[in-house]
Simulated assay, not measured.
Amino acid sequence: MSSNLKIQGARIFDGMGWHEDAVLVVEAGRIVSIVPENSAGCTGETVDARGHILVPGFIDLQVNGGGGALLNEQPTLQGIRKICEAHARFGTTALLPTLITDTCEATTAAIKAGVEAKAAAIPGFLGLHLEGPHLSVVRKGAHDPSLIRAMEEPDLDQLLACMQALGCLMVTVAPENTTIEQVKRLTDAGITISLGHTDASFLTACAYAAAGARVVTHLFNAMSGLGHREPGVVGAALATGTLFAGIIADGFHVDQAAMAIAIRSKQGPGRIFLVTDAMSSIGTDLTRIHLNGREIVREGGRLTLHDGTLAGADIDMLSSVRIVHERLGLPLDEALRMASTYPADAVGIAEQKGRLLPGTDADFIILTPELALKSSWIGGRKVFETTVHM
């Protein structure tokens, strides 16, 4: 399949608005234009998408695994390839493979694999998300407390050294184990700092946001809650306009009413966006997986340690979009923005991804009117197509 093509007849959402019976024109892997049907010339192939919906490909900034691979257990180029391929089957065309708190050796291996994946131009690989180890033991969640520690100079040097090679790097930290000065140095280098797994106060979270922290990791989960006298990290995430916040919409991590309240109350321009927090079970029939030597059980849509602690999520991005659209009642265009436009904005790649505008990467998916996936495209090339008749 050529990367020069036109896709015709679809209802197209470009990240901002809808185009009816339109044609998407792609050249050299980038969007050229969206024009009325029968008015577009193209030197490449023509794809008939009549009766379907074409939207920006999903961007997932927190993906622990998929297709049987967990980054912690397989911090290799092949592991990252498996993860990206697995999530393309559910509409995700760009993602950050995410390393949960682990040893220094595992972190180094994951960074090396990420640099290799970037150099190899693995379809769907956006960069890395290092979720820990500089978190709070009090809010550890499923993270191994024996591996949580303060950020030291060698850690900071390692992050600064790999940023340019990776292109996109997100690091989740807690103020309990990271200083404001360290956050400033990291964000000045272009690294996206996210606050998570922290019991910090509202004022502390606001101070870290002022220092450059840009995101909050899985809103509500593993953080100080919204109280009427101490608004906590949740309050800071909602009240601070510069902060974006990821949210897990599987129905287990956050109650639907809480999700709806948060979305309505979030101060902008920062927005709430969807993350899957997916584990290696996605795209497989696995019922048991392992993290740091501990068993995680998959049952009833949940992933838990043996003590009942949630350990990642068993959901894909397309299912997340359906949930916020169908159960929360969000307009479809807003649900789609939460899975593409807003995460692109959160990590500063809006000029390349998250919208189907001239010059952006031709990362898009084709859906049925019922929001079932027909195909996924990265850089104008089809990377997945369902074999089920629609």
Rank of each mutant, 00 (worst) to 15 (best):
T107P: 00
S136M: 12
C84S: 07
L95A: 06
L77K: 13
T103R: 07
L126Q: 10
T101N: 00
T76H: 13
I59G: 04
E116P: 05
F58I: 14
N64L: 09
T98Y: 15
P75E: 12
G79K: 08
N72S: 07
P75L: 10
L95W: 05
E37I: 11
G66V: 11
I34C: 03
G127V: 13
E131P: 00
K118S: 13
L135N: 05
E37W: 13
L128R: 08
L130M: 12
D60K: 06
D60L: 08
C104N: 09
K118V: 08
A106W: 14
V137A: 00
A113M: 07
K118D: 04
I59R: 04
G91D: 02
G127Y: 08
E73S: 08
L71N: 02
L70T: 13
P56C: 12
L135S: 05
I111Y: 06
L96M: 12
P75G: 02
F58S: 10
G68K: 10
P36A: 04
T93K: 03
T98L: 04
K118Y: 07
L70Q: 14
A113I: 05
G44D: 09
I83Q: 02
E37V: 15
G67V: 10
D102F: 14
G132M: 09
E85L: 12
A110K: 13
N38D: 11
V47N: 04
A49R: 09
L77P: 11
E37P: 13
L130Y: 15
P133F: 15
G57W: 00
